[in-house]
Amino acid sequence: MLCFEDVSFSYPNKKHVIQKLSFQIEKGEFVAIVGPNGSGKSTISKLADGLILPKKGRVLFQGLDTKQKENLAIIRKSIGIIFQNPEEQLITTNVFDEVIFGLENIAYPPSEMVERAEAALEKVGMLPFRETEPHKLSGGQKQRVAIAAILAMEPKLIIFDESTSMLDPDGRHQIISIMRQLHNEGITILHITHHMDEVLSATKVIVINQGQIVSTGTPLEIFHKPQMLIDCRLELPFALKLKMQMQQEEVEVPMHITDIEGMVEYLWNSR
């Protein structure tokens, strides 16, 4: 669905942010890209959407090259991005208009807009805030409005570009659970983050550091490479730290147990 082929990118007069990056995201996947601050991970969403163009290599979305200008309309319609800063992506003066804005851009029939917009707001639980102005919403609520605005456009792929990093724990949980729900409904998800505990629900994890892919695999495969994570300035979720420690004592805990309670229960009661 989304395909990076040997993509390199750099901002003027700076060293490469991304070097020879290649990966693919298939339809229905939930991919997490993790990496420390400054690893170039946020450049990926902009490249995917054709907001910036690769210096070398190609970015293809369903076979459409982002370098071809005429492809951009369809690419941007099909890919939705939730950016990091909740304050800097709400464009209009109230919640309802925010959703309408995107619908207008994709030339959706005006007579059907209300229905579509309300359904999208309902989905993220923001319908009661229909007429509210953005500055009266919390960070998590703003992100949910941004999600609704994108959902209304019926994207095929949604990129969460560090969308949880400026939120409080409550806001983070909300966004993560919406993400899961959307994935279950068949939307392809790309989640860019540095919170390792957020990637557990992903089907595939790509670890990047200094603009290059360091490792790819399922969350559990990735978590079983603690040294690699430490080298990439990332943190192991606590339960997995415990698991690693027990492993050193040659006590194996089954792969699928990833929470603290489950692990203690297993370690205490199983033989």
Partner: peptide, 25 residues
């Protein structure tokens, strides 16, 4: 900084300088 990010957000939402849009009445 905000203006820059905002213009990215607007582009990402498939806005094309007011072309080919419908308007909610």
């Amino acid at each position: 900084q905000r203006a820059e990010n905002l213009s990215l957000a607007i582009d990402a939402r498939a806005y094309r300088d007011g072309r080919d849009r419908t308007r909610f009445k």
